[in-house]
Amino acid sequence: MENKDIPSKNVANSSYKVKHNKQPQHKHRLKKNMGNNYILYIFLLPAIILTIVFHYVPMYGTIIAFKDFSPIKGIWGSEWVGFEHFVSFLQSPNFLQILINTIKLSSFDLLIGFPIPIVLALMLNQLRRAKAKKNIQLILYAPHFISVVVISGMLFIFLSPTGPVNSLMTIFTDEPYSFMSDPDAFRSIYIWSGVWQGAGFASIIYVAALSNVDPQLHDAATMDGASLLQRIRHIDLPTLKPVMAVLFILAAGGIMAIGFEKAYLLQTSMNLPASEIISTYVYKRGLQAGDYSFATAVGLFNAVINVILLFTVNYVVKKLNDGEGLV
């Protein structure tokens, strides 16, 4: 019996040694890889430094969300108040309105703006004339390079009571319509102007993914009698599925981090009930009113919700996409 137990002990000891020798071997391979490709790591170094300086170092300042911050006393000298600012924000009379505005604006922007670049990419992929395809892509990509300030100014000019849109509408109506003063019109103006500005440029990733599709697959499907929609459904869409999953997770994870600039620039005193969102509220309370602690608490609250949404959406996509997610 003792002799029979010896081999099992040796096997256990050998497996134990192999298991615990993996870590030194892994470190050795990592050092060897860094030594052989040190030039690549040098090129990567500026990006790492910038990420640390502008993304990780500022996290230290979030501590003022739990303090009654005073610029004179500094971060550590300010009085600790715990979750007082969070409670104050949750109990504020305009909390629900700001939260609902943010969720509605970002959700509709995602639901409308996410599929349009995919449709554009599928349409561009069907063009066979290279020159026509390049010209159409140039027209679609150009709005992305226009400043948000310029876009907002254009919207105010075109949609003003004396603008070209109202000039056409007065042919059928007696009075001009004040688009920028109507809270109900603000959401549509924000979303569709964003689609016009960013859909073309957002389709680049999908166009690049479709360029990897073997043309012989389409030729074979055409010979078998497959229609255009059938080829898109069974060849192009499965190719785009992994890219769509990753981009949807990233977009849904940042659903609460909707852009500040455009919403603030399009705000008027009349459309404020629909245009006031968390980012504009933080700007007004933090920089304009000087309530830095409260603004930081609201921003931290927003960030926590974004992180929760990111992991939730990633989990759902993993379940629906056969275990393929972002994290």
Rank of each mutant, 00 (worst) to 15 (best):
L310I: 04
E261I: 06
P161V: 06
L326T: 05
I6R: 13
I103W: 08
P143S: 04
G61W: 15
K27R: 12
D109E: 13
F145H: 04
E276D: 13
S275N: 11
R29T: 04
V81D: 01
F66H: 03
N314F: 00
S211V: 07
W196V: 01
M154V: 15
V282Y: 02
G163R: 00
A226V: 08
D236K: 10
M123L: 15
S92V: 12
V207F: 02
M1P: 15
S78T: 05
N21S: 14
F179Y: 01
I235G: 14
D214K: 09
V213F: 10
S279N: 08
P215C: 10
G74R: 08
L120C: 03
G200P: 12
H218P: 06
E324A: 11
G163W: 02
T102D: 15
A12S: 14
Q230H: 02
A289I: 06
N166G: 03
V53W: 12
N21A: 14
L272T: 11
Y190G: 06
T51G: 13
L96C: 12
E175D: 05
R29E: 10
Y141N: 04
Y315E: 09
L310K: 03
S106D: 13
N306I: 12
S14N: 06
G194W: 04
L266Y: 02
L237T: 15
K32V: 05
M34G: 07
A220W: 12
N33D: 11
I191W: 05
A47E: 07
V307K: 09
V327T: 13
A274T: 03
K284I: 02
L124Q: 07
L122C: 10
I139S: 08
M34C: 07
L210G: 03
I204M: 05
T170R: 10
S181I: 00
F311T: 12
I171R: 04
F95H: 11
I6L: 15
S92G: 15
S188D: 00
L159Q: 01
H144Y: 08
M270P: 00
A257D: 13
P183H: 01
W80D: 05
